[in-house]
Write a protein that binds this DNA or RNA. Structure first.
Length: 289
DNA sequence: TGATATGTTATCTT
DNA sequence: CAAGATAACATATC
C-alpha cells in the first residue's frame, strides 16, 4: 500500500544503490507490467532515482528516456547485489507493499520484471495484483505529465491558501477530495483516514463546507501524519532486512485506519467503518463531526 | 464460495 | 460540458 511516504523512502534508498549502474538486461515476465520499448534502456547508466507524486522516476545519464514506476496497491521493488543470499542478506533494498516475497529467493511467483545491471545486481519488480507498471517514457512525455500534476502535500508551495482553494472548489465528501490525485498529490486511504481523525472532521462532510479553522486543523494534521509516515515508513525499507523486518513500523502508528470496533484513542468510543466512494473509511462518531 | 482489499482510470450518469 | 459516481483492472486472503 505504498503512499507518498513509502514511495519517498524507496526512492531515496534506490537512489543510493542504483546510481551509476548500467542496465544490461531487462526481462519482462508479465507483459502488462512493462510498457514501452525496453531495448531503449539497454546500456543506459542510472543518473538518479526520485519520487513524483506516488511515482518513482529513474533517469539516465544519456538518452531521451526515463523509466517511471507506479507501484499502485501491491507493487514492490527489491534490489539485490550479486552476492546476495538468504543467510547473509547483505546488500539489499526493498520497498513497497510488504509481502513474504521479499524474504526468499527471487524471482518469485509475483515477479513481473527483472532489471539486471552490469555489476551483477538486479532490481525485481514484484506485483501481486498486477495493477502497477513500469513505463519507458520520452522526457517530453514525462514533462507533460509533470506539468499537469497538482502539488504534493509535502511540497514547499503547498500552502494553507492553496489547500483552502482546492477544498472550496468541490462539494464532494472531504475524504474523496483529499484522496483525489488530480487535486492533491500523495495522500492515500490510510493517511487520509488518520488525518481526518486527527483534525476531528467527519469524512463525509462536503469539502466546501469546512470552516476556516477546520481547514487549518486539517492542513496541519495532514502534514503531521505524512511526516510521521516518512519517519516510521523509513523503517519499513531498510538496507539490511532481518527476518523480523517484514512489514513496517508505521502500521503501529495508525490512528483509525483498519481499526473498526476498536476503541477511539481519544474518547474510547468504538471506531466505525463506512464506505465512501467504494473505499473503507474509519472514523470516530464522537470525535469527528 | 463470496466478500473484501491499499490506487488509478475509463466510462457511465447526473 | 463538467462534476460526480461507479465499475474495472488481477489476484490473494479471510
Amino acid at each position: 500500500m505504498p503512499e507518498l511516504p513509502e514511495v519517498e523512502t524507496v526512492a531515496r534508498q534506490l537512489d543510493n544503490v542504483l546510481r551509476n549502474k548500467k542496465i544490461i538486461k531487462i526481462k519482462v515476465l508479465r507483459e502488462v507490467s512493462f510498457k514501452g520499448e525496453k531495448k531503449s534502456l539497454l546500456g543506459r547508466v542510472v543518473r538518479s532515482v526520485s519520487r513524483v507524486a506516488k511515482m518513482l522516476v529513474i533517469s539516465f545519464t544519456r538518452g531521451d528516456e526515463v523509466l517511471v514506476v507506479h507501484l499502485k496497491m501491491t507493487g514492490q521493488l527489491v534490489w539485490r547485489a550479486d552476492d546476495w543470499n538468504q543467510e547473509k542478506m547483505k546488500q539489499e533494498v526493498v520497498g513497497g507493499h510488504p509481502t513474504v516475497d521479499w524474504m526468499g529467493d527471487l524471482p518469485s511467483k509475483h515477479t513481473r520484471v527483472i532489471i539486471s545491471f552490469r555489476d551483477g545486481s538486479r532490481l525485481f519488480f514484484n506485483d501481486l495484483r498486477v495493477f502497477g507498471w513500469m513505463r519507458v517514457m520520452k522526457k517530453l512525455e514525462w514533462q507533460k505529465i509533470n506539468a499537469g500534476l497538482p502539488l504534493d502535500v509535502i511540497d514547499r508551495e503547498f500552502s494553507l491558501v492553496y489547500f483552502e482553494n482546492v477544498l472550496k472548489r468541490s462539494k464532494r465528501a472531504i475524504k474523496l477530495v483529499l484522496m483525489d490525485q488530480q487535486k492533491i498529490g500523495g495522500l492515500g486511504n490510510i493517511y487520509v483516514n488518520d488525518a481526518l481523525f486527527k483534525a476531528g472532521v467527519d469524512p463525509r462532510r462536503p469539502s466546501n463546507d469546512l470552516r476556516k479553522n477546520e481547514i487549518k486543523k486539517l492542513y496541519k494534521a495532514i502534514r503531521d501524519v505524512i511526516t510521521l509516515g516518512i519517519k516510521y515508513g523509513g523503517a519499513t525499507y531498510s538496507n539490511f532486512v532481518a527476518a523480523s523486518g517484514l512489514g513496517g513500523l508505521y502500521q503501529e502508528h495508525f490512528l483509525v485506519y483498519g481499526k473498526e470496533g476498536e476503541k477511539c484513542k481519544r474518547c474510547g468510543n468504538k471506531i466505525k467503518k463506512i464506505m465512501i466512494g467504494g473505499r473503507g473509511s474509519y472514523y470516530c462518531k464522537k470525535c469527528q463531526s
